[in-house]
Amino acid sequence: MSMVGGRRSLVIPGEIIVEGNFRAGLNTYLENGKIYSTVMGLAEIRGRVVSVIPIKSYYIPKVGDIVIGIVTDNSPTYWQVDINSPYMAILQVSDALPRPIDPAKENIRKYFDVGDVLLAEIALFDKLRSPLLKANGRGQGKLKGGILVEVSPAKVPRLIGKRGSMINMLKKELGCQIIVGQNGRVWINSVNEKLIDLAVKAVKIVDEEAQTRGLTERVKKFILKGKEKIDLESA
């Protein structure tokens, strides 16, 4: 296959990517000197390591990740949070509020209720229990207003870009508040609804075309065009 030297090619599960002296990286396995892909995605060879960037992926919690969750249920002392993952997360009251409360006297629903969107951090996850969240850090807790967009968790690194190039460009050009969770959820807020609309479209473009070249520039052009249109309409 003529893809040594950074070229990417689309592979399907079980497809042989390369033969010879290579090491199996992410989403691949080695058998009898051949490297096979395990998922549908783009194969990439860097040095001697072969890996595949998946097109669809699932978020597996990792301690320290900042995620955006949606409260799905509550009990007297904890909330159950959907973090866009095969595993449901748990947020204990003591990890969410600045001071202890008495669950016998207070109903925790007045802090977070079902349907609320939370910015939280994975505090603990050992594959034997549900992941535990904490939401008492700076800026963490309930996200009010705004709009939530979902992208594939595998595309999150592209949405942030090298040293934040993509996300900083989006924030600068749009002037919106944008928070990207490692679990593939993106929260966007602004006073101007049309700008939110534009931001959602821009994020969708990044999600769909994550593997193409010159994406940051293309998205920038798209935003400038969109902003011109908004200015014309309001004028």
Binding site: P13, Y29, V39, M40, Y58
Partner: peptide, 12 residues
């Protein structure tokens, strides 16, 4: 369908 769902497989 499994491949479309992004589930890792050794082969189709």
């Amino acid at each position: 369908a499994l491949a479309d769902a992004g589930i890792p497989m050794k082969d189709l």
